[in-house]
Amino acid sequence: MPARTKGDVGARIAYYRSVMRPKMTQQQLAEAACVSLGTVRKIERGERGVSDSTLEAIADALGVDPTHLRANRVPTHTRVHESLPALSAAIATYDLPDDGPVRPVHELRTSVTEAARWRLGAQYTRIVHKLPDLLTDLARAYHTALAGQRPELAGLLVMAYRSADAVAYKFGARDLSARMIELMRWAVPEADDPLLAASVAYVRTETFFAAHAHTSGLRALEQALDAAPAAGTAQEIAAKGALHMRAAVIAGRARDASAAVTHLNEASALAARVPEDVYYGTAFGPDSVKVHEVSVAVSLGDDHVGRALDVAGGWKPPGGLPAERRSAFYIELARAQLWSGLADDAFESLKVARRIAPQHTREHPWVREDAATLRRLKRADSETLTNFAEWCAAT
């Protein structure tokens, strides 16, 4: 159902686009929201309605809550949470899917690739709307497939679970996220792909982050590194490099500076051997390692925070990096700046993160904590800070 069919929604979109600093063009809005320029133009002119998913994508690109644009005033985070039970229902029948039509493998492959692209672009509302049906379709195809088709379908299930897990984890549904990860671990042996297994080990680290079991998480990653194939091909190099990046961060959370530096150095050496790209669903390369260098410094805290500022002083993540990763860089940088007494710089970094990936930024707990701290530090300051804090539900 359209959220609104005529010009009032379009007028609101045009208004928020015009008051952004710097002002956003219709072309820039279209690119950020992943819709066509013609669609933006028609919506703003009131010539066409706008679906809820498109409106949410536009709101995210503008860095405003969709309630500011729509008439029914239901916030995006509420809509996502309301959709999570559908994901839960889809995975509850992973081994006993309902009877129904079986989609061709090439169609399923295309849908899984699209969902992965949404995950990397932090388009979580699109994932939560599409993945329940896709997961059901994949389970049905897997359980009715001939033996020769099962490995590919198992691999597609793993990738689809990963996209669904991104929503569950980012929106705080940690039990659902853990179930998704266990299903990845269930499906990956059937895929018979050690590089896919390495990517599952990378994702599994979320459960250790959530439980604050950092030392155990580091041990699990080191076991995955031992099991990973030798770093020969670009895909193999990236698989080991991504595990080292992840190990560096969780070692930082465990306050094990020696292990963090060792894994970061290993990741950097491997990154020098491959171009920056997305390998098995994970971005890896020299730029990704730079982002993780900032993350490790913030994780270690104390005297290490200055390293995050040093890295950011001479480098910024290029536009070719996935939006989720770029926004993470600025979220981590904002925390380092805030800890260093650079409140204004921290707020600027948070605003950059929001422009890059609004949904990821709004749901990040550090953003809420830091926005609340900034608001306390600058009580008499700008309406912009107040609006930002209200947007991300900072308290």
Rank of each mutant, 00 (worst) to 15 (best):
A14W: 00
Y15D: 06
Y15H: 15
Y15E: 13
Y16Q: 06
Y16K: 11
R17C: 10
S18T: 13
S18F: 04
S18M: 10
M20Y: 04
R21M: 05
R21E: 12
P22T: 09
M24W: 06
T25C: 08
T25S: 15
T25N: 13
T25K: 12
Q26S: 11
Q26K: 14
Q26W: 02
Q26T: 13
Q27M: 10
Q27T: 14
Q27F: 09
Q28S: 15
Q28N: 12
A30C: 07
A30P: 05
A30S: 12
A32M: 00
C34Q: 07
V35T: 06
V35Q: 06
V35F: 01
S36W: 00
L37F: 12
T39F: 10
T39E: 05
V40Q: 07
R41S: 15
K42F: 06
K42A: 15
I43K: 08
I43D: 02
R45D: 13
G46I: 07
R48C: 15
R48H: 14
R48W: 03
R48E: 12
G49Y: 01
G49V: 00
G49Q: 08
S51T: 13
D52Y: 08
S53R: 08
T54S: 08
T54R: 04
T54I: 02
L55K: 12
E56W: 03
E56V: 14
A57K: 03
A57C: 06
I58V: 10
A59F: 08
A59R: 09
D60P: 02
D60K: 03
D60E: 04
A61C: 08
L62F: 03
L62T: 08
V64G: 03
P66D: 07
T67P: 05
T67N: 05
H68M: 13
L69S: 10
L69V: 06
L69Q: 08
R70F: 00
R70N: 11
R70I: 04
R70K: 12
A71R: 09
N72F: 01
R73I: 03
R73M: 09
V74A: 05
T76G: 13
T76D: 09
H77P: 05
R79Y: 07
R79S: 14
R79M: 10
E82M: 13
S83F: 05
S83K: 15
S83D: 11
L84E: 10
L84V: 15
L84F: 09
P85V: 13
L87R: 10
S88P: 08
S88E: 10
A90I: 01
A92Q: 09
A92S: 13
T93A: 07
D95I: 04
P97L: 01
D99N: 11
D99T: 07
P101K: 04
V102D: 00
R103P: 02
P104V: 00
E107R: 15
L108E: 07
L108V: 07
R109F: 01
T110H: 13
S111I: 06
S111C: 11
V112A: 08
V112I: 10
T113A: 14
T113Y: 01
T113G: 12
T113S: 14
A115E: 00
A115F: 01
R117D: 11
W118A: 09
L120W: 00
L120V: 02
A122N: 05
A122Y: 01
A122F: 01
A122M: 05
Q123S: 09
Y124T: 11
Y124I: 03
Y124W: 06
T125R: 13
R126A: 06
I127K: 09
H129P: 03
H129L: 11
K130R: 15
L131N: 06
P132C: 02
P132D: 00
P132G: 01
D133P: 03
D133I: 02
